[in-house]
Design a protein around this nucleic acid. Structure first.
Lengths: 249, 249
DNA sequence: AGGTTGACACGAACTAAGTTCGCCTCGTAG
DNA sequence: CTACGAGGCGAACTTAGTTCGTGTCAACCT
């Protein structure tokens, strides 16, 4: 059962209904075993310290003190490592018991958790955006948010689509934020800018073509901390329940 | 002036205020010249026909009938090609004259334009998400949306942040949609699923851990056409102007 | 107990891709 | 006509994903 890494990957995803009551005997480790867990740990370490761009099969193997080929007994390919990483991140998300009176707050909390996990591992949200929607760990988070929305009286169809929009936004936000941070330490990045420089450039744009951008350069570049994040989440969340909640309360 | 590709790239981005009234004499083509425009055309052709993953320096050079090194007299690096592509896409966006009475409609129209451009070039929104915010062509679209929002009576700070959220969502949506389409023709993709298969797998999840996902599998996977897109844009847009518009009407 | 087996580890190598180097070509200027 | 230099291009360097074949060791079988 533990032979084919493709089977291992499949086990992490929602499967068709073919019931399989197979045995699950894990014959304990052999010597200094490379496991999927150790690979995930090593990969997370690489991403946390050097960023997602530095995540290569070789870098992970190096952390484990071996060569790249050694990993292929446990993973299918590099995308599989992404899958493992996102899975691990999702496992760490705490899902509250749905409270109909605090559902907006609960949604915000879970989204903030996801955001902070993403930011802790810079660039990893790229992998999240490319993730296949059957990963069991991501489905668990999906289920948790879904339950909160439903408890809040949101229509199932509305809730389902809202989850999609929320995840997309959170991942996009984290990706953008990660890249801004990342670019600060890159070599070619001297032509990329911090906020003051950005404002200066916006103000230097031609007046006829960019009047608003010039005038409101400060507003366009503002948003320290997670103000932008909170604002966007507000847009998405506060508008939910317009139908259902208007009737209920 | 046309020597260094870094200068060419810089010319496409917002610059600091050092006034430069330099000459702009282009000395006409020499023989069968490789130009930035031809590179952009070739790259767009590759993305449109084979997808963003197939966009390599070599594939672009191949379309132009030359080798990879020939491009480096015109581009800085591969990210520079992304920059060119997004710029070209943005140039094609039609920005309406802001109409205070139809601002929501206008925003939806521009976002739909961007979405369709992205989808026309599958996966290209990855590049859009990684784009540096000083590209002049993207700033033009930014300015256009900004003007519409301001005409609609939205507070400048609110409008600025709303643009951010809108772009992030549109790019994320297009990326997800592109990948779904892309995976249909990949080899390893037989383990990735279409909607019916996805519903079946959701329904096969354990009842205790995934009750809502099981119950509303249809809702979670629904959304043909751009229903999800329209829904999410509605969430973002309809909630705007709550302050300003409530007073004005 | 000793051989057998097979899962796992791993060095080496293959391929693809981004990038650089140095030489060549060819049009223009003097 | 020659010199210059921008631009084109082949070749090669580097990094990275992936595969192949072989080695190794623990458990099992006889």
């Amino acid at each position: 059962m533990a032979l084919d890494p493709k089977q291992r990957r499949a086990a992490r995803h929602a499967q068709p209904d073919t019931d399989s009551a197979a045995a699950a005997g894990r014959p304990a480790a052999r010597k200094a075993p490379i496991t999927v867990e150790r690979i995930t740990d090593a990969a997370l370490h690489v991403v946390a310290t050097e960023g997602y761009d530095a995540l290569t099969i070789r870098s992970v193997a190096n952390v484990l003190g071996t060569g790249p080929s050694s990993l292929y007994a446990h993973i299918v390919n590099k995308a599989d490592i992404d899958d493992l990483l996102i899975g691990r991140l999702c496992v760490q998300i705490t899902l509250p018991e749905p409270d109909p009176d605090r559902w907006r707050e609960q949604i915000r909390d879970v989204c903030a958790q996801i955001r902070d996990r993403y930011l802790q591992y810079p660039g990893i949200s790229r992998a999240a955006l490319a993730m296949v929607p059957t990963n069991l760990d991501t489905l668990r988070v999906n289920e948790g948010i879904f339950a909160i929305l439903l408890a809040g009286g949101i229509e199932p169809q509305t809730a389902a689509w809202a989850i999609d929009a929320l995840f997309l936004y959170v991942a996009g936000y984290a990706l953008e934020a990660s890249m801004v941070r990342q670019r600060r330490k890159d070599r070619d990045a001297n032509w990329v800018l911090n906020q003051e420089e950005l404002v200066r450039r916006f103000r230097a744009l031609p007046e006829d073509a960019f009047p608003q951008t010039r005038r409101y350069a400060a507003e366009l570049t503002s948003g320290s901390g997670h103000e932008r994040f909170d604002f966007a989440l507000g847009l998405l969340i506060d508008n939910l329940g317009g139908q259902a909640e208007a009737a209920g309360g």
